[in-house]
Amino acid sequence: MSQAATTIDEGGSAHGRLMRARFASFAQRQGALIALVAVCVFAAIRYERFLTEENLVNVLRQNSMLGLVALGMTFVILTGGIDLSVGSLMAVAGVAAATLAGQGALIAVVAAVAITTVLGLVNGVVIAKARIQPFIVTLAMMIAARGLVLAYTGEKSVGIGKSSETLTSLGRDFVGPVPVPVVFLVVLFALGWLVLNHTRFGRHVYALGDNDEAARLMGLNTARVTIGVYALSGALAGLAGVLDAARLGAGRPVAGQGDELNAIAAVVVGGTLLTGGQGSVLATLVGVLLLGLIFNVFNFEGWISPWWQAVLRGLFLLVVVIVQNRLSRRK
């Protein structure tokens, strides 16, 4: 009987099936990691200069601002929300820091980050208290904050004077072989991991994205968590904006344009679900590096025009997400 045959067949390869199931679940969680390794191997074989310290450090530095923004975005997306205002907040912080550079680097940085934290807090309060969708609230903030910074600067960049070399050094100096922004990136991702996995706030972020109504009925102060993640996202976007201004020696009112979408892309490619409740900061780090490396590969190739690069990046994003989706549904 054919049925009996199938049964025996499957019994015989039980081990194989288990291995395949394990691989599928690994691939689902680590799909981006696998892609990252694949891109690295491809690039290492194809381009001599890929594995040089200079190139790798460069890739890291170029992506550290985006990484910080994506870190904040991870918290927001884990609660099931979205933050479209981060790109504009980067510009706000950059311009604020440049304007205040004369007061000393510390004051400039703290004040700039404080401003964007407050703007993030405003996002959170409106979302949690007035119960308006995050998409709308942060879209409004994105438009308004960009307008504010353009109006304030008259569309011109604000230079960071010679007087404040401490500030510019934040974007340009190295700690040993490591650029300062990369140090920030590593330290803050480590902190982010700690917070998400080992503090109440972090676990409540997951709880909120899992089922907000259940979380509320279980006695969680959901408003506090919501406000917290948007404030955090604002703070990290602000820091990214400051580092960006420091590196370029000027606060630009157009800084960070489109970075909100790049950050969302990095988070999603990493494997964090847009619906919330599942994902991690490590996944986001992988997502950021993956998108960054692809850019790096395009640079090595040289002949692909920026427009076609955009097309390819869009396609790549789609493919990664489809594959992950497939794998996760297989369970």
């Binding site: 676990r203 409540h204 997951y206 709880a207 899992d210 089922n211 109504e213 259940a214 979380a215 009925l217 279980m218 006695g219 969680l220 409740g277 599942q278």
Partner: peptide
């Protein structure tokens, strides 16, 4: 009314 993705212990002590 519980959290599907979280562990049993987390659900109990949330």
């Amino acid at each position: 009314n519980l959290l599907t993705f979280r562990t049993v212990a987390e659900n109990i002590y949330l």
